[in-house]
């Protein structure tokens, strides 16, 4: 266990000393505030009119009545998008920077297994992503309270909280292919491009009815209300997602363990 504790300490120090961590926290707070702004505009159409374009667009989006039920739905839908980008970015940074900063060569010939280094990096991706999800949800709640939306109850928080957590969990599982690509391409530009591509493909797969079988569309579909035709997840959806996660995980370990580090 001493190996993993040391490598986690090292990884956490790198994150604590970087500005990127706080930038992502602020980004998630901003996105969460934008979700509440949509509800704000829905609730106060007169202000919406005064806001011009913002009001028109928000009205066009029609997220239903401005209440907590619809607000939570919006937050969860938002999470399925921003979470994928956020976790993808975090993973790209944690894995890719060792290559782009050329520090990789110093951590390969040490009396600590490369597998521990990879695992501790994944642990930090998970912790960082959980913190971002938590920040997004808590600030979402606070902004919702500020907008004074009706229909808040402990049951609705609990029910949506569970869906939110499950969505976040599914998103985090998808970090492993990004880590693989960061390690394979030896940097973070390529994996970030991949994350953007998966976002586009997730939307496209949803349009053609293949969303449940495209791993990156699964977190977004998880929170979908039942009854949406062609959008229902099934056991195959989760199997594909888990297989993608495992392939990314073992692929990343294989790259670190066996590939030439030129």
């Amino acid at each position: 266990m001493k190996f993993i504790f040391v490598t986690i300490w090292v990884e956490s120090l790198k994150i604590r000393r970087s500005r990127i961590f706080w930038a992502t926290v602020i980004f998630f707070i901003l996105v969460s505030s934008m979700m509440s702004l949509v509800m704000f505009v829905q609730k106060y159409p007169e202000i919406s009119a005064k806001l011009g374009m913002i009001g028109d667009k928000a009205s066009l989006l029609r997220f239903g009545e401005p209440d907590w039920k619809n607000y939570f739905r919006l937050l969860i839908e938002g999470m399925s998008g921003v979470g994928l980008v956020g976790t993808g970015f975090v993973t790209s940074w944690i894995f890719g920077r060792e290559f782009s900063d050329h520090t990789i060569k110093d951590i390969l010939s040490l009396p600590v297994s490369r597998v521990y280094i990879v695992i501790s990096k994944f642990i930090m991706v998970v912790l960082w992503s959980v913190i971002l999800s938590f920040v997004y949800f808590i600030f979402g709640l606070l902004f919702g309270l500020l907008v004074d939306l009706p229909g808040l109850s402990s049951e609705i928080i609990s029910a949506n909280g569970k869906i939110f957590c499950a969505t976040s969990f599914l998103i985090i599982l998808l970090c492993t292919p990004v880590a693989f690509l960061a390690s394979y391409s030896r940097g973070y530009i390529f994996p970030i491009g991949f994350v953007i591509l998966t976002m586009i493909l997730a939307n496209f797969s949803g349009l053609v009815g293949l969303g449940p079988y495209f791993p990156w569309a699964v977190p977004g579909l998880y929170g979908m209300p039942s009854g949406a035709v062609g959008m229902q997840l099934n056991i195959a959806s989760y199997i594909i997602l888990i297989c993608t996660c495992l392939a990314g995980f073992f692929g990343t370990i294989a790259i670190w363990r066996y590939a030439d580090q030129k």
Binding site: V6, L13, D101, K105
Partner: peptide, 18 residues
């Protein structure tokens, strides 16, 4: 190359621990 955001002491502390 060293971790750019870490100080000299922190960089060395990383390697002391590793």
């Amino acid at each position: 190359y060293s971790y750019p955001e870490l100080t000299v002491r922190e960089n060395l502390e990383v390697f002391r621990r590793l």
